[in-house]
Amino acid sequence: MSEKPKGKMAFYWAASCGGCEIAVLQVDAKILDIAAAFDIVFWPCATDGKTRDVEKLADGEIDVCLFNGAIRTSEQEYMARLLRKKSKVLIAFGSCSQEGGIPGLANLSNRKEIFDTVYKENSATFPENPDDLRPQHETEMPEGTLYLPVFYDTVKTLDQTVEVDYYLPGCPPEGDNIWAAVTAILEGKLPDPGSVIGAHSTVCDECKRIRTEKKIKKFYRTWEIKPDPDTCLLEQGLLCCGIATRAGCGALCPEVNSPCIGCQGANEGVQDFGARLISALASVIDSEDPEEIDQIIKDGIPDPIGTFYRFSLAKSLLRRKKQTV
């Protein structure tokens, strides 16, 4: 046993699916090493604990906080601020906290539109809500005032809310990468603050498929063709995001004949993930006729933002759809 006093670690789950919580277990038996090195002071998903326990900690008392999920309510923002204050190292864990992730696609609408869908137009909820009730921030009850978190119009990433020290990309992050991060923390060999802990190349680097030169006459949806298992999916017309997506997953999806959807986010130094795909794909569309070009794009990419910014809309340069005032 080490003489060193154990560190303190926290986990938090904001706007995300919960997959990141499970992904932590991908480190397998090494979880015991983590347990040996750290006391888990806060992990609502796995251990009993209360926010007030965190509030009671001294500032910077938590050595490492792995924060997953985007910020879309006042409660999540509060927790992000709290954990930032209490943690020496705050890690944005997974694509939602790093770049908004799937919840970030809510930035194509706003609170009103989302609530309309959920409480009014959705066939599952509407019949049970004939009076069109909506969540209220404050509700007066005989026992006192009840508060619900405020639901924001715009989903934010963790670093649009508080300062973030490191990023672990992925939906969810890969076990090896998590372990690499933990090791770095344990050994005090962390990279420069602000870094993404991961590769500086893209998924093609890890993809074993044979690539030749790219010319695309038509984009196919995944259900339209049965791809050849050995050649580049993009060259077969499947919109594979691997060209632009940070390596580190071992090309998991292309490996099983499914195009990369970009969960590991953009490569090092890239400002806007979608723009990289837009530019690269537009460059290799095999037509010089403006009408045909429009047709190829329209036919093959019915939901461009969902395709190019599936995980990164909140972190993109434009962040969200234009709000009509």
Partner: peptide, 13 residues
Amino acid sequence: EDNCSGCRICNNL
């Protein structure tokens, strides 16, 4: 070159 994944997007351009 260290970080080029060899995707070959640029090759034809």
